[in-house]
Computed example of a mutant assay.
Amino acid sequence: MITRRGLLKFLGGGFASMAVLGGYAFAIEPLARLNVTRYALKPPGWTPGLKLRVVALADIHACEPWMSASRIASICRQANALGGDITVLLGDYAAGMNLVTGYVHSSEWSKALATLEAPLGVHAVMGNHDWWEDRTAQKNSGGLTFGHKALADVGINVYSNRAVRLEKDGMGFWLAGLEDQLALVPGKKWMRKDMQGLDDLDGTLAQIVDDAPVILLAHEPDIFPKVPSRVALTLSGHTHGGQVRFLGHAPVVPSRFGDRYAYGHVVEGDRSLIVSGGLGCSIAPIRFGVPPEILVIDLG
C-alpha cells in the first residue's frame, strides 16, 4: 500500500517533471536549439548530371524574444555556411502570435534575411500570417503585403504564382512559387473553409515551356494532392511539424489532411514533398519534439 509520504513524493516528482518539460518546451527548444536536417533524393525525371543543393528556411515568425532580428541574422549566417546553390524562403515572416515582448518590424527582419547568399540567388514565397497581419491587404482582397514589399526592397526574389527558369552548370531547372492558399479571411470568420486562397497552380505551371525539372514552393503543403508528377519536388512549411510531436505524431496539425503532410519527406506515387518543421512559433511560443531547423536538400 502506498503511504502518504510515498504519494506526496510521487506527486512532487510528477509536478517537477512537468515543470522541467514545460520549461524545455517554452524556453529551450524554441530558443536554444537549431537543427540542420538533410535530405538527398533524385526525383523521377531529374536531369542526369544536375547536382543541386537547396537550402530552405520556413516560418520565421519574427518577434521578441523568440525570433529577434539578431537571431534571424545568426540563422542566416549558418544557412550561408551550408554551401547551397540556391536558398529558398517558404513564408510566414510575420509574428503569428501575441505572446511576445515586442514585434519585429518588416524592415528589420527583411534586413536580416538580406544577409542570405547563394550563387543562384535567394527566392521567397509568402505565408498565411504575412497576409493575415496586413489589414490593408485584407481590405483590398489582394495586392502586395508589407512582406512582399520588404523582401523586394532588400533584393530578394518574391514569387506570386510565378515560374522562372534557372541554370546550374549549363543545365536548366524551373523554380515556381505559389501565392498563399489561405491568404484572405472573410470578415471575422477564421474557419479554414471560409478562407480564400490566392494560389494559381495551373497558371503557374503554364509558364513552364520546356522539359527541365520543376521545384515548387508552396507555403501550405495541402496543395500537394493537386501537384502533377511534372513537378520534381514540392517544398512547404506552415505546419511547424505540428509544433509538438510525441513519438513521431503531432496531436494538432494546421492541415485538413491531419498528420499526412505534417513533417518531413512524403512520397506519393512518383511525386515528392518535403515539409519543413520551420524556425519560429505561431499561436503559442512552444516547441516539443520539433526543434527549429534549416533544410538542406541535395538533388541529383
Rank of each mutant, 00 (worst) to 15 (best):
W132A: 11
D130S: 12
G269E: 03
P186Q: 10
D169F: 13
G91Y: 08
V154C: 07
V20K: 04
V209D: 14
V122Y: 01
A58P: 07
D153C: 00
P213M: 08
K51W: 00
P225T: 04
H265Y: 06
G269N: 08
H238E: 11
V54E: 09
H123T: 02
V54K: 04
R135S: 15
A69C: 01
F26G: 00
D92C: 11
G289L: 12
K9Q: 15
G45V: 08
G237F: 01
N140T: 12
G242A: 07
S236L: 01
Y159T: 04
T47K: 11
T234M: 13
G300H: 06
N98E: 12
R5P: 02
G127C: 10
D194A: 14
R5H: 12
L99Q: 13
L273R: 10
S255P: 11
A56S: 15
I286T: 03
G280L: 02
F224D: 05
A218G: 13
A118C: 06
L151A: 08
L82C: 07
I297R: 06
T234Y: 02
D199M: 12
V227S: 04
N161Y: 08
N128Y: 03
A95N: 14
P213D: 03
M1F: 10
L21A: 13
N128I: 05
L89M: 07
G14T: 13
D199A: 15
H123N: 13
Y159P: 02
K139N: 06
K193I: 13
S106T: 07
G6V: 00
I86E: 02
V104N: 13
D199L: 04
H129T: 03
Q181T: 15
G280T: 03
Q243P: 08
R165W: 02
I86L: 14
L198Y: 07
L52F: 13
L182G: 00
V36G: 01
E293Q: 15
Y261A: 09
F246R: 02
K189P: 00
C281Q: 14
R287M: 10
H148Q: 02
Q138A: 06
L57S: 12
L144W: 05
L175Q: 00
R287W: 12
I75E: 08
V122K: 01
V253Q: 06
M126T: 14
V231A: 06
P251K: 06
L57R: 10
G269V: 06
D202K: 15
Y24S: 10
Y24W: 15
D211T: 14
Q138H: 10
S255E: 09
H129I: 00
A163H: 04
F257M: 07
G127M: 07
G170F: 14
D202S: 15
G45K: 04
H238W: 03
W46Q: 03
M171D: 02
G277V: 13
N80Y: 05
C76T: 11
D180R: 07
D200I: 01
H148I: 00
G177F: 03
H219E: 01
Q138D: 10
H265K: 11
R271S: 14
C76M: 05
R260G: 02
R77D: 15
G96R: 07
D59R: 04
R77Q: 15
D211Q: 14
A206L: 08
F224L: 09
L21C: 11
A284I: 15
G170Q: 06
I223H: 01
T136E: 15
W109M: 06
N161Q: 03
E179M: 06
L166M: 13
